[in-house]
Simulated assay, not measured.
Amino acid sequence: MHLPGIVRIIRPANATISGATAILAYFIATGTLIPEVLLAAAAALLITGAGNTINDACDAAIDAINRPDRPIPSGEMSMNAAYAYAALLFIVGLSAAFYTNPLCLAIAIINSILLILYAKILKGTILYGNIAVAYLSGSIFLFGGALAGIDGLIITLPLAGITLFGTLAREILKDAEDVDGDAAGGATTLPMAIGISRSGTIAFGSAVVAVIVSFIPVLWWGLPYLVGIAVVDIAILRSVFPTIRCATPACIRDLGITTQLKYMMYIALLIFLVASAIDIFMPMK
């Protein structure tokens, strides 16, 4: 089924995962759910969609080479329409965050500004853009936890850290895949500056840090979590390690590593949910 451009441009799966992650983060922080969590989820979904939309608008020239099927280069949506659509999504998303609490609203405002800066400036810089995306991904856990106040935010810090370093590895490898298009679009990315092999080494190092951080929740979730996350950790390291030997964008693409990492992180989210539910109904003694 071919979704219309107005839906595809927000990356509906990605945006929905953001909303679901906000709910999950609150559940992890408190062991309960309240009606306000739906507002937090809506804010996360809409602001993520707005960021994806404005990013596509700013990347139209690059996407014409790397992703010609996307709504703007394919002609389904004009650049001006995309900017207006992004503005609407930001406004509605921030309005939803306004009815949560001041801490959530502050994170939503900071993230909205950072999403715009990323699309306009940071994406074309060496590593700063990757770090921005990694923070934004991890901060969804902080956003959901913040609905429970400072204590909730602190509880979700390790999960934000896992997501941050895992996403950083994926973003670096995505840049390695897209070297040709980025060069044509005038961007300067880490793989263009230091080479694909060295970038693969840095991505692998970031994945190792994510794996190390992933063991922190064992302290409160115990053996069930350890078993599940260990399987994912091993899969992540086995997938990322071969990129160290890649010297061309085609090599990275042929490995399919960025897609694998995306789904592994989704599985990690499921493990977080199951482990937190087990802890609530069958707490460690």
Rank of each mutant, 00 (worst) to 15 (best):
P224E: 02
L223G: 05
A41M: 07
T188Q: 04
E36P: 00
G124K: 04
G152E: 12
N66L: 08
A148C: 07
L164H: 12
L94D: 07
P12F: 05
Y26R: 03
F215L: 02
M264K: 10
L223E: 06
A187K: 06
L190P: 04
Y85S: 06
N130I: 02
P249I: 04
V209G: 05
P249R: 04
I212K: 04
I229F: 00
L105P: 12
A119R: 04
A42N: 07
W221A: 03
P102Y: 02
L190K: 07
I154E: 15
Y266I: 14
S276V: 08
I34R: 14
Y99C: 05
A96H: 12
I252A: 01
F204N: 11
I23P: 01
V92S: 02
T156L: 14
G256I: 03
A207P: 02
A50V: 12
L94W: 11
L153P: 00
G144I: 02
L105V: 01
L127Q: 00
C246Q: 01
A81K: 14
I257N: 03
V37R: 06
R245C: 03
I91S: 15
G75R: 05
S18I: 00
L168M: 13
S206Q: 09
T156H: 04
L164K: 07
P73L: 12
I196G: 05
A13K: 02
T167C: 14
N66K: 01
M264L: 14
I109T: 00
K262D: 04
A13I: 08
Y128W: 07
T21V: 14
A64M: 11
C246A: 12
F165W: 15
I6E: 05
K262N: 06
I155R: 11
I10F: 13
G149L: 06
S197V: 13
I113E: 03
D233Q: 00
L105K: 05
